[in-house]
Simulated assay, not measured.
Amino acid sequence: MAEIGLRERKKQRMYRDVSDIAIGLFLEKGFDQVSVAEVAAAAEISKPTLFRYFPAKEDLVLHRFADHETESARLVAERPEGRTPAGALRERFLSGLAGGDPVTGLCDVPEVLAFHRLLYGTPSLVARAYAYQERSEAALAAALGGGLDARLAAGQVIAVQRVLALDNWRRIVDGEPVAVIRPDAVAAAGRAFDRLTAACPELATPQPPACQPGPPAPDASESR
C-alpha cells in the first residue's frame, strides 16, 4: 500500500511540475508562441511522456482545474444531515469569496490574475475548459441522483458558478478593489443560489438522516 501511495505522489508531482513549467512559458511568451516540444525540453521529458500526462496542449494550463472537477459533487454527496445541495454549494462559494479563492474570481493576487488573463484571452483554452465543465456537470448530476432533471440542475449550478466568478474577475481587471467588489459578490451569489433553489427541486432536498440499525433479530432458540 505504501508503494502505491509513493507512486501516486510521484505522478501528481509530475503533473504539477510540468504544468507549472508550461504555464511559466505561456505567460512569458504567449500560449500560441510556445510549442509542446519546447515545454517538454524545459521539463526535461520526452514529448511522448508529456502527452501521456497531458493529452492536449491546453491541458497543461487547465490541469489546475482538475482538482476542482468533482468538488461540487463531493460537497453534495458529503453534506451533513438536513443540508440541501443548494445550501452546501452556497456555503462553499460564500466561503471562497471570504477567503479570496481563485475559483470564485475574487482574487487579486498578481499570479492568479495573470493566469486568468492567459485563460480567458486564449480561445483554445476557453474552448477546452468546457470539457472540464462537462465533467463537473456529470459528476454533480450523479451526486444529485442522475437522470435528466439532475443533469439540468447540475448544468445550471456549474453555469452560475462560472458566471459569478467571471463577473468578479472582470471587475478586478477593470480596476475595482476586492473590498469594494466583495459585498456585491456575496449578494449576487445569494440571489443566484436562491433562484437555483426555487427552480430546481433536486437542489432543495435535505440530506436524509443516516440509516439507524433496526432491532436485533430474535434468537431462533427462544421461539422453541
Rank of each mutant, 00 (worst) to 15 (best):
L89M: 10
L25P: 00
V61E: 01
V61R: 06
V39I: 08
S46G: 12
E78T: 14
T70C: 00
S46F: 05
V61D: 02
F26Q: 08
L89G: 00
L50Y: 03
P85Y: 14
F65D: 02
F31S: 04
R79D: 01
F51D: 00
E78K: 14
S72C: 07
R83K: 08
L25D: 02
T70K: 14
I23E: 12
P85R: 14
D59S: 09
V61Y: 11
S72Y: 13
R83F: 05
G24N: 12
V39M: 04
A86C: 05
R74Q: 10
A40G: 04
D32C: 05
A40I: 09
Y53G: 01
R79M: 08
L89V: 09
A40H: 09
P85M: 13
A66G: 06
I23K: 13
E71P: 00
L62E: 02
E71A: 08
P48F: 05
L89W: 08
E81A: 06
G87F: 13
A42K: 15
G24E: 11
A42E: 15
R52K: 15
K47Y: 03
P80H: 12
G87A: 11
E38I: 02
A56E: 12
P85E: 11
V61M: 07
E44R: 15
R52C: 03
D59V: 04
K29M: 01
R52Y: 09
F51M: 11
P80Q: 13
A22H: 08
L27K: 15
F65N: 01
L25S: 03
P48G: 08
D32V: 04
E71W: 14
E78L: 13
E81K: 05
F31E: 04
E28H: 10
E71I: 15
F65E: 06
F26D: 03
G30H: 10
D67K: 14
H68Q: 11
I45N: 01
E81V: 14
E71L: 15
K57M: 04
P48E: 08
S46N: 06
L50S: 04
A66Y: 09
D32R: 11
S46V: 11
T70Y: 07
D59N: 12
V36L: 13
A86S: 12
A66C: 02
D59C: 04
R79I: 07
Y53H: 14
D67M: 07
R79F: 12
V36E: 07
Y53L: 15
F31A: 02
R64H: 12
G82C: 09
V34S: 02
F54R: 10
E69S: 03
E78F: 07
S46R: 14
A41P: 01
G87T: 06
K47G: 01
V36K: 03
Q33C: 02
R83L: 10
P80L: 12
V76T: 07
E28R: 15
H68V: 06
G87S: 06
D32I: 04
K47D: 01
G24A: 09
S72R: 15
A88H: 10
A66N: 06
E28I: 05
A41E: 13
G82P: 02
A73L: 11
